[in-house]
Design a protein around this nucleic acid. Structure first.
Length: 207
DNA sequence: AAACGTCGCAACCGCAGGTAA
DNA sequence: ATTACCTGCGGTTGCGACGTT
């Protein structure tokens, strides 16, 4: 027996929210607060919507202090570095950015940042020798992005990254080493065939 | 001007975890 | 201990806007 559906699909409206629906939801929540159950909320206010849809609409658009679009360079840096260190935990990443939602951060990553970072990657022959066969695709991608991220910032060591993070080169190296170790450890007990990937990074990028 | 392709965003889906009964 | 239900989350999809041919 499968899981019971969260609402009566036949009697639920789907698709874009109308201004009237949004206004109804907003007015109710502003007056009564978020009640005990989202699932019963649409029925209370006469909306033919799934409770989950109401929750999403409220969290992503209707509540106060929500920002849309126009991600700053600093926000991009935060998203990139957090993605590299903790992966696709969008709600945790969004929590570090005032006024951003997980959905917004996720969309921004998928449509822009990922392409931007992957675009920074060097030719395969110049990339560090990552043991692709021993890592999951997700871990491998994070390693590749970290490499690209690191490379892109090395020329600016005296500049942007250093200014924003107040870090010295050894501190950066240490952080990167920790990040890479975390990725590998989280993914699996991986053998690097006697050579730590950071060694490749340091050899490739040392100035 | 029309057809087609691409991009970005809003919203949906299904699963996992938490919790009350 | 088990079950049922609710919320929260991340992956995915659908569609409108925009650009290109």
């Amino acid at each position: 027996m499968g899981r019971a559906p969260c609402c009566d699909k036949a009697n639920v409206k789907k698709g874009a929210w109308s201004p009237e629906e949004a206004a109804k939801l907003k007015a109710y929540i502003e007056e009564h607060g978020i009640g005990a159950y989202w699932l019963s909320l649409p029925h209370k206010i006469g909306l033919k919507r799934c409770g989950k849809s109401c929750r999403l609409r409220w969290l992503n658009y209707l509540r106060h202090n929500i920002k849309h679009g126009g991600f700053s360079e600093e926000e991009d840096q935060v998203i990139c570095s957090l993605y590299i260190s903790i992966g696709s935990r969008w709600s945790m990443i969004a929590a570090q950015l005032l006024g951003r939602t997980d959905n917004d951060v996720k969309n921004h990553w998928n449509t822009r940042l990922k392409k931007k970072l992957l675009g920074m990657q060097t030719e395969p022959s110049q990339s560090p020798c990552l043991p692709a066969q021993t890592l999951s695709a997700s871990a491998l991608q994070r390693m590749q992005l970290l490499y690209a991220f690191f490379l892109s910032n090395i020329p600016a060591l005296g500049g942007k990254l250093l200014e924003t993070s107040h870090q010295t080169l050894p501190q950066m190296e240490q952080e990167i080493q920790i990040s890479m170790s975390q990725i590998v450890q989280e993914d699996m007990d991986c053998s690097w065939h006697g050579v730590h990937p950071l060694q490749y990074l340091m050899m490739e990028t040392r100035v």
